[in-house]
Design a protein around this nucleic acid. Structure first.
Lengths: 296, 296
DNA sequence: CTGAAAGCGCTTACAG
DNA sequence: CTGAAAGCGCTTACAG
């Protein structure tokens, strides 16, 4: 049950100063090979591990980023989180999560920044109020990136699916099958009310569930899919292919949404001197043809 | 673009020492009402927020817990994560996530502890090796709790579903419907090989997917569910009820698994002097009767 | 190339 | 009840 070694223990063991130990770890090229090796040997012997809390305090950083997820239990969002995490794992940042659906009056979101717990944030939640956004302070545009959802305030970077292209592909697909009467069952548009509805839809497992629900509903009324009517969804959650009939969908690459958002945040955190231009990146979508659509 | 206020700024504004400010924030009952109010007023005036990194360093803690998830994009696990998060939000701990499926040779899991980045861990991953477990150090039994999965090493607390009871309920249900020929399609058992398989199954969306796949397969061979055969699943992922036919399942309360695991970890972190007895908590499961089973 | 010293922003014995 | 002082474990100008 020994106390963990600190930098002073290593310095003593190597016969150098703590400054030299610190340099061996962070800027080894500054030292002679001889000194460097002596430090490494001492590190090995003492089992020294740097204390991140101390390093962070001294460097005035937190070494963590926050990912704000509207609902952690919803695979639609957690797949994006997964993409974010895969990029962050390879960086020096830890990933901290918060769930907008879990109210916490004691710790408003901004406290993560104000209390120096995170250096930046990726938000999958586009329903942040202007007041909340103001709470992040003046430099927030360099520290916050939106993924999938976004806020209308244009100063924040965001990564989104190419929804427009997806919609076009869907229509073209149905048109090519000979369909001329095409309905669109949806909620989202541009105003705030429907934004809230969009939110609800996503929380109910994205629009695919609407397709599932639609098919079930049609079925109960004796209308068969795809014999009597073709149905397709937007989003390709994992079970779309197991559904009967397997659902034709426009597939969003949610993992990629997360990865690209992480890339942007990392880039911004590493060069936060001059404000970066706002940015909207579109991620390609894809049509996956299955059994729920067929020629007329 | 002002510098954020530090405790010294508040002390100056209130005409007291930094010690008094600190006490006003952490142990207000130690101060006279007059002093306390003066500090609160100064806090308000300066917009002071405590710097968590500094506090943590001084208190020799990290203020964060790690949740190790086998696959973040899998809703089976992220629902447990959601339960954990809901409890942690109300605590003083932040939730940090790691994904076992994202390899990171540079930062082994133990580095989260050894580098003082977390105070404890909840692992949803039962496939940790003994070597990895050793890396957490001698006090790890008080700092690690398993949820859903677990390791055979008995020194760690774990929270699990009552799988035995679930299996019994399933058999009783089918039996009561008149079924006498009952098959069991599964992987998991107690040895290491099948543990690995279990892992794979979970990553493929838990055993429910097996039920879905089974039904699809039966269907392709002209066998109808439930007309010719009844099928039921274990786990109740969100789409079980949207599947056609809606699937009868033994439902695991994954959210509860997470919440209980969080409770245990918080309890252990708050009293880590004497080693706690290891513990296995079983969480109740429930039979959800839907359309995929029917009387013979 | 290396070291002595200051300091990141807090908390907590210790003393009064 | 309150303050002066030490110290958590690092990093980084500064000086040589």
């Amino acid at each position: 049950m020994e106390k963990p070694a600190k930098i002073r223990d290593v310095a003593k063991a190597a016969g150098v100063s703590t400054a030299t130990v610190s340099r061996a770890l962070s800027n080894p090229e500054l030292l002679t090979e001889r000194t460097r090796n002596a430090v490494f040997e001492a590190v090995r012997k003492t089992g020294y591990r740097v204390n991140q809390a101390a390093r962070n305090l001294r460097k005035q950083q937190s070494g963590a980023v926050l990912v704000l997820v509207p609902d952690l239990s919803n695979p639609f969002f957690s797949t994006i989180l997964s993409g974010i995490n895969s990029k962050m794992t390879a960086s020096e940042y830890s990933v901290l999560v918060a769930d907008s659906s879990v109210p916490d009056p004691d710790t408003p979101l901004s406290s993560y920044f104000l209390n120096a717990r995170v250096d930046g944030m990726i938000s999958l939640d586009g329903a942040l109020t202007q007041e909340e956004l103001n709470g992040f302070g003046t430099n927030s545009a360099n520290r916050i990136v939106f993924a999938c959802e976004w806020v209308h305030n244009a100063e924040f970077a965001s990564v989104r699916s190419d929804n427009m292209h997806g919609a076009r592909m869907a229509i073209q697909h149905l048109h090519a099958l000979g369909h001329r009467n095409i309905g669109y069952v949806s909620g989202p548009s541009q105003n705030v009310l429907t934004q809230v509805r969009l939110r609800g839809v996503l929380e109910e497992m994205a629009s695919l569930t609407m397709a599932f629900g639609l098919i079930s509903g049609l079925r109960e009324h004796g209308i068969r899919v795809p014999d009597d009517i073709s149905v397709m969804g937007f989003d390709d959650i994992e079970l779309a292919e197991h559904f009967i009939p397997a659902l034709t969908t426009i597939k969003q690459d949610r993992h990629m949404l997360g990865k690209r958002a992480a890339d942007h945040l990392l880039a911004r955190l590493s060069q936060e001197k001059q404000p970066l231009a706002p940015l909207i990146e579109l991620v390609e979508v894809e049509l996956v043809n299955r059994a729920s659509t067929r020629p007329i």
